[in-house]
Design a protein around this nucleic acid. Structure first.
Lengths: 114, 114
DNA sequence: CACCTCTAGTTTGTTTTACCAACTAGAAGA
DNA sequence: TCTTCTAGTTGGTAAAACAAACTAGAGGTG
């Protein structure tokens, strides 16, 4: 739970990131948490990831399937539906827009320190 | 209210942006809404901006002062406190972190379309 | 066998924050 | 007088991240 400072800024972004990752390869909650870690999202708690996955499935963005595991309980693999892929593309353009806007404001700040 | 799609992703980001803008030059709610528009945040509703400014003042991040206006009601000018400037710097590093992380995931996606 | 650890998922409730809707009000022009 | 633009406040709602408590399987150690 190291990165709870950026917790508010995560909102909406996490869902988009999951859609991209799961579209690359279907995966399950426990593994996704570890994979997010590789991308700098250190210790996204399971209290965040599991409910999000379930909500996204309810919304019709993801579909899921249980698969047996050799060393532990069953794993619930998620992958994007067609609607999920549409949402993914929507996220990509929205993120780019947000990034552009915020960067232009942040640049104001940086030019002060020259 | 055109950009309510990105509404969730705005969370936490807006406060940081206001701190930067108000540190450049103190301003009041109505004008800030228009200024945000220049940076691509089109039509951030006043139901967002006014309560946010008040909350930030309650938190001690902003201070305010009423000034007369020649053509309308009084204007409440806001500017960052010392705590507000600290929060601004914190936002800058947190935003950079988030941007880096999301970009690395978004890049996965873009490499697929080569 | 009892206990612990790692893996894996669910559920309930809380907090933060953007936003809507309704309201008050001043100044200027038709 | 009425409308429009400017300017701010208040109350309530919805979405999303997160903590905490719970259930469980598999494997190892004392």
């Amino acid at each position: 739970m190291a990165s709870n400072e950026t917790s508010q800024m995560l909102k909406g972004v996490l869902q988009g990131c999951l859609l991209i990752l799961l579209d690359q390869s279907p995966s399950y909650g426990y593994a996704i948490t570890q994979r997010l870690d590789d991308f700098g999202f250190t210790d996204v708690p399971k209290g965040t990831i599991y409910p999000l996955l379930m909500t996204m499935e309810k919304k019709g963005l993801l579909k899921s399937e249980f698969r047996e595991s050799a060393d532990g309980p069953k794993r619930k693999y998620y992958s994007p539906t067609t609607a999920g892929q549409t949402a993914k593309h929507k996220f990509l353009t929205e993120w780019q827009q947000l990034e552009t806007n915020v960067t232009s404001i942040v640049n104001l700040e940086e030019h002060d320190h020259e």
